[in-house]
Computed example of a mutant assay.
Amino acid sequence: MGYGFSAAEIAYLGSVPGTAALAEVAEYELSAASQVRDAASVRRRHGDRAPALIETVRLRRRAAAKLSGARDWLLTDDALQQATPTLVARHRARRLAGRDVHDVTCSIGAELVELARHCPRVVGSDLDPLRLAMAQHNLTRPVPDAAAAGQRATVLLARADALAPCTSGTVVVADPARRSGGKRTHDPRALQPPLPDLLSVYSGRDLAVKCAPGLDFDRLDWDGEIEVISLDGAVREACLWSAGLREPGVTRRATVLGTAGTATTLTDADPGEIPEREPGEWIIDPDGAVVRAGLVRHYAARHGLWQLDPRIAYLTGDRLPAGVRGFRIIGTCDFREKALRSELRRLDCGRLEILVRGVEVDPDALRRRVKPTGSRPYTIVITRIGRTATVFLCEASRL
């Protein structure tokens, strides 16, 4: 659960003396090796405020890779885990540019900071007064590259229940907590607030709801768009966009973001017709956002690829799309461990990457059993072609 901040501690941390104390504590190493010594030193200088100071510095360090400008933020451990990465929040805010927006689960303000850069009027509400106090502080921090983003809006903060609407005429943004009883949940009814209740309360409103990408979207009675978003190859979230916010004809979207500022979008309105052919020179494993959005065929059609098997998400082709990881096929064999071990020995295989889809295999256990001891790196792709488990022997992956 992390450290429990008090209202007095939050007020102190946001004050001029608290800011100075945080700058001082930020000079400490605070590593596993130095934590006892460092904590004792901070306690001698700052007394009972030491735990809040140390926790805040540690959280800011953890947040640096996720939240732009977090070196000045106030956070909690739970709020940081739940917070939307800045680049993902910025992408959503750009889709809402020019609209008045109400974030009904604003927490510490990770979404609000980006919404305020793109929307004229923004409201943030939450039931937790401590997180609202942190959001108020975080919204006053300087925003990196703010000049390029234009004028920031004025944000109104309010303590309110997400299931009790308190604005009208706004686009509603919600991020239900995905932990139940301290454990992550993929059950829409176990979210806080429950997803079915949220959708019911705001029925007929323009609505964007951030969800876990592991939810079974086919079970949702949703007439809008489902967008799955990845960042630097890792699937981060899904977002449900109500019918009034989606593009005509689009019900599924995959958005692939990169920290370098790249953004690629694919939708189910794009062409999805691909040929049926024998495996080409390369195997391509599409980005997870493409796979989870159910847009593998659309991705293949865009890049001149086809599927190894119609039921499997691995693609193949005679060339790699630019910037995409691929595996050059050098041979195939049936999935029999004795034959595989012999083939890997013949290839002088040492470091071995094992990719599996459509076959029940534990890659780590298989690697231990085949015991590669050579000097050259290889990748094997184990997948099902028709009813047969097939092993593709590949050169080590590359772009």
Rank of each mutant, 00 (worst) to 15 (best):
C394L: 06
R387K: 14
I385W: 10
R336L: 15
L320A: 00
M1N: 15
A254K: 03
V228C: 08
V155A: 07
Q307C: 09
R351K: 13
R49E: 08
G304D: 02
S168M: 11
I329C: 03
Q192F: 15
R71T: 11
G124K: 02
G258A: 11
T388N: 14
G181Y: 13
H91Y: 14
W73E: 02
T262F: 05
A146Y: 02
V25R: 08
G224S: 05
A33W: 12
T388L: 15
E114H: 05
V16C: 05
I229C: 07
P120L: 08
G214M: 11
A365T: 12
V370G: 08
D145F: 07
A89C: 02
P213V: 07
S203D: 14
P17S: 04
R236K: 12
L22E: 09
T84D: 05
S6T: 12
A133S: 04
L266V: 01
A153C: 02
I312N: 02
G4L: 14
R159H: 04
L266G: 00
W222R: 04
K183M: 15
V104T: 02
L156K: 11
R92C: 01
L220M: 09
K371I: 13
A40C: 11
A83P: 02
H102M: 08
K338E: 10
E24C: 09
N138R: 04
D232V: 01
P271H: 03
R277M: 06
S31T: 10
P377A: 11
H91L: 06
Y314N: 13
K183W: 14
V201D: 01
R336G: 14
G331F: 12
V36T: 15
R357V: 08
G233K: 01
E278L: 08
A293V: 01
E273P: 04
E247M: 08
L366Q: 09
L215K: 14
W241I: 00
S203W: 12
D362K: 08
R131P: 03
I108S: 00
F217W: 11
V122G: 07
T140Y: 10
A147E: 15
L198N: 11
T262V: 05
L240I: 03
H118T: 09
D48H: 11
L139Q: 00
H118I: 02
T170Y: 15
P144G: 10
A135D: 00
V101H: 08
D362M: 09
R60Q: 10
D364M: 13
A208D: 05
P271D: 05
I329Q: 03
L231Q: 13
L163H: 01
P372M: 04
G386T: 07
G386I: 12
L344N: 02
P271F: 05
S68G: 08
R117P: 09
V88W: 07
R302T: 00
V296G: 00
T373W: 10
S68R: 15
V143P: 04
I226C: 09
G233N: 05
P142V: 10
D126L: 03
V291H: 02
F5A: 00
L132Q: 12
A190Y: 14
R49Q: 12
